[in-house]
Amino acid sequence: MSGETPPREYVESLLSKGAYKVSNQPTLEAYVDAQASGDGEYYFEANKALLKIYNSQKSLANTDKMATVLLLALVESYPSTDLLALSYLLPERYAASEPCKSVLECSELLDSCRFVEFWAGLSKIPTEDPSLKALVGRSTEKLQRGILQVLSFTYKSAKLDKVLTVLNLKDSAGLTQLKDPCLESVSGDTVVFKSTVDNTKRNRVFQEGLSYNAIANLMAKVSAE
C-alpha cells in the first residue's frame, strides 16, 4: 500500500485482525493523511488504534500525526466527544507540546463556546506538516456548521451580527451559502433556526453571547446519540 491511499475497507480488515499491531502503523498513518486531505472518510476507530500503537511503541510516535488525529476529531465530529476520548490516549508530554497543545487549546475554547477566541486559535496552530496544514485549511465550513448546530440546540432565533461573529463570517451571504439544514431563514437582522423540541420549549433568543451552562447538557445529549 506504499504511496497509495488505503481504502477504508482495507483499514477495517486490518483492525479486525488485530487493531493495535505495530505492523498496522504505516497504513493507519496513511489513512490519517487521507482523512486530513478529504480523500478518506473519517474513521474514529482507526485513529484511536494509531494513538494506542504510539502509546505502546514510544519510538514510533509522530506528534504531527497525533495532532492531525485530534484535529480530525474536532473538525469531523464536533459537538461529539470523540476528541475527549482520544485525548485520554495522549501522553502528557505530547499534550503539552506543539502542535498537539494548540489543537487541545482550540478544543477547550470550542467546548466553552468561546468562539471568537477559537477562530483566532485555529489560525495559529503550527502547520509545518502538510496533512495538518491541509486539514486546517479545509476545516472552516465544517466547524461553522457544527457551531450553528450548537446554537440551534438552544436558540430559536439570533441576531445576525452575533451569529456572523461566532462563525467568523463577514456577511449574511456567507451564512446563506452554508445551506445548513438547521437554518430556517436569514432575514434582515435576524437568523431563525428550525424548530426543535429543545429550542422551542425555551423560546430563547440569542443576543448578548452564549452561556456554556445553557447548552452543555444538550451537547452531551447529541454526543451520546
Rank of each mutant, 00 (worst) to 15 (best):
G18I: 03
Q207L: 08
G38L: 07
K142Y: 07
G146Q: 08
A95G: 14
A19K: 15
C106A: 13
D129Q: 12
L84V: 05
L167D: 08
E141L: 10
N24G: 03
L14Y: 12
R8L: 15
S13N: 06
L51A: 05
E9D: 14
R8I: 04
E98V: 00
G209P: 03
K52D: 09
L72N: 12
V11A: 11
T165Y: 02
S107H: 12
A224Y: 09
S37I: 00
S185N: 07
L70I: 01
K162S: 08
E92L: 10
E208W: 12
Q35E: 12
N55W: 11
A34V: 02
V116Y: 09
D33T: 06
C106E: 10
T68V: 02
S211L: 10
G209N: 08
L50M: 10
A158K: 03
S172D: 14
L122N: 06
S59N: 15
Y20S: 07
S187L: 09
R145L: 06
L164P: 03
Q149D: 05
T196Y: 11
N217L: 12
D33C: 05
L60G: 00
E184G: 00
P6R: 06
F115D: 04
K58A: 15
E105I: 09
K156V: 00
S77L: 04
N213Q: 15
D111K: 09
Y212F: 10
T176V: 14
N217P: 00
V186N: 09
S56C: 00
A73D: 02
T196L: 14
E92Y: 11
L50K: 06
E117N: 08
T5N: 11
R204T: 05
S2C: 00
F193L: 08
N168Y: 05
A85K: 14
K201E: 14
M1S: 14
P26M: 10
S13H: 08
I53G: 01
N62F: 01
K52E: 15
D39F: 06
S102A: 15
R93D: 09
Y155A: 01
V22Y: 11
T190E: 15
G146H: 05
Q25T: 02
P6Y: 07
K58Q: 15
A61H: 08
